[in-house]
Design a protein around this nucleic acid. Structure first.
Lengths: 344, 344
DNA sequence: CTGAAAGCGCTTACAG
DNA sequence: CTGAAAGCGCTTACAG
């Protein structure tokens, strides 16, 4: 490819040119004690001049840390590319990494459990220093696996469990409260929740809280499970909106932006006015929600900030911190045009 | 975090237990000649039993290849999270990587040129074996930088240049032909192109080809530059649709899905019927196009397949291949509801 | 504050 | 076919 020889600059080169030991160069470069201020200065200058960057492999091998974290996403490509959820999340992670000079090893697998092998391999290979985990499952197999290998990890989840992994916990009750209060103020009494797959802990937590808190407010709550996909959202909505008038919901809380968009379209096809005859809320905001007509009321969960917090927590754990749980901030309801007074 | 000691298994362990040399273990594991079939077999079995995975750092250091490729995306987070372009692309890369057992180091930077530092650092650190580059610029600074460091790279681009880096070239002429023929068949004579930033080579190539090929067909072509963002798409559309009737376009070719959605909305606001009075084509397909009403006619460029090809090409280059240019397949026009016969 | 040395876990000529 | 040995480029006790 290239005619120029890519001459590697190593700490040996720097040591030789400065006539000091490699150890001193290393100490100077890493800001460790053990060198005089003057020596440190000279090393830093020469390193800069030669635009020296340490071999990541050598550092990783010697110090047994790679400076990189891993994220493995096991989701249907179709949904994931449409949702924007993960892209925002990745951006948040990257913002942190850009400052901390860490890096991200990313793997997108299908949803057939191939992910677990990737975790095992990366951990064994010491390719990463730790993982951020999403989409917690019941008896999630990743947790015992990674714990047994001594791999630090942070689960971004809705459940607070004392299992000694890091957890960034989404305060779902607060979200549920915001949503229900919003609908309550509009006088809605019959509310349906179209969730994502109940195999995800966070969906179960949301469904449970929604049911409990809705009933506490005297609402009639109904829950149906969706898959996050467009078709599934459309189908569930059609089912709900063709129920007998007296049990038909006047408001829909929909698990993601795609299904919420589907719900909106389906209402349109059934000639049901939104928000006149039906209110719709999307659990996650995105361009889809902005661009829909009427624009969809949605929760902004501050995904980038959340991801940044998760990354920070993981780096602390890797650094030896022992306080692994943290609460992520409450989101904001973006009240747009798809919610209004109850009709019946 | 964990109470269990994560006992590393190394090739020394395997060598000791089998009473052979580390070299033999290495040869056996890597499928190299130099060991008897029987020894190889025993090594493989024991490795499997101990679920041995070589330290990636040690391999990288000794063999000076990391098995990972780098992608640095320098784009506005807002656009990137909405577009779905990159998420599809990443999925294509990952599909290849899942099979080739490679990995992806990903960095999302802003668009202020911070990316170049990341390229330099990763190359110097030998963190990656090569890069896939997107969004080629005029006199793109990444090319001389990476070439001078002997870093293999593949530019996914629209321009065929003989500069000895890998290039996966999109056949833009074919796309332009498909789009114009489609509009031509509907009798459109006045066509406007809302492009992305002209600083990108691919946008320039498209604008030039569109102008040339349109004129060759006797069409009146007009080009305006957008930013890929929603507002920009809306603003440009408003401008075009409020031109005097005789120069007002009857069809819009819009540089991405977001701006196309904006164009559709804006037409709606101006009470211009789509496709009755105006046809709209999106350059890139996405859920946004599917979900819009009317559904947007759009090009499906087979982004996943393209990304897979790019990754394959890069791996070949890393492996020493010397045929760095390749054509990516032509896309398909998804004819939906936003295009129809010209009105005037 | 500084240097000599061992070691991280592999790969790769080089001899047998 | 097999083994002993050097080396990849760092870090990190350990002595001075």
């Amino acid at each position: 490819m290239s005619s120029t020889r890519p001459e590697r600059v190593t700490i040996s080169d720097i040591a030789r040119r400065l006539d000091i030991s490699k150890a001193s160069v290393s100490y100077a470069l890493n800001g460790r004690p053990g060198v005089s201020a003057e020596t440190r200065q000279r090393v830093l200058e020469l390193a800069d001049e030669l635009s020296f960057h340490p071999s990541s492999a050598a550092v990783a091998l010697a110090a047994s840390r790679s400076g990189t974290i891993g994220i493995v996403i096991a989701r249907d490509p179709k949904v994931i590319t449409a949702e924007g959820f993960y892209m925002r999340t990745l951006f948040g992670v990257e913002q942190y990494l850009n400052e901390a000079d860490g890096s991200l090893l990313l793997r997108l697998t299908g949803e057939n459990g191939e992910d677990i092998d990737v975790y095992r391999r990366w951990a064994r290979q010491r390719r990463v220093d730790g993982f951020i985990l999403y989409d917690e499952l019941d008896d999630d197999p990743r947790i015992p696996l990674l714990v047994s290998m001594g791999m630090p990890c942070v689960m971004v989840t809705s459940r607070d469990l004392d299992d000694h992994i890091g957890r960034l916990i989404t305060p779902e009750l607060e979200t549920v409260t915001v949503l229900l209060d919003h609908l309550n103020a509009f006088g809605h009494r019959r509310i349906a929740h179209i969730s994502g797959p109940m195999s995800y802990i966070h969906e179960r937590v949301r469904a449970d809280l929604l049911t409990r808190e809705g009933r506490r407010r005297g609402m009639r709550m109904r829950h149906v499970e969706g898959s996050y996909g467009y078709e599934s959202g459309a189908e569930r909505t059609r089912h709900l909106l063709t129920l007998p008038a007296r049990s038909r919901p006047t408001a829909l809380i929909v698990g993601n932006d795609i299904m919420a968009t589907a719900a909106l379209r389906t209402a349109g096809e059934l000639a049901i006015d939104v928000p006149g005859a039906l209110s719709i809320i999307a659990w996650d905001d995105s361009v889809l929600c902005e661009v829909a007509r009427p624009r969809l009321t949605a929760m902004d969960h501050g995904l980038m900030e959340k991801a940044r917090l998760a990354t920070d927590l993981l780096f602390r754990l890797i650094g030896g911190d022992t306080e692994p749980h943290r609460l992520s901030p409450v989101g904001t309801l973006l009240v747009r045009d798809s919610t209004g007074p109850a009709s019946s």
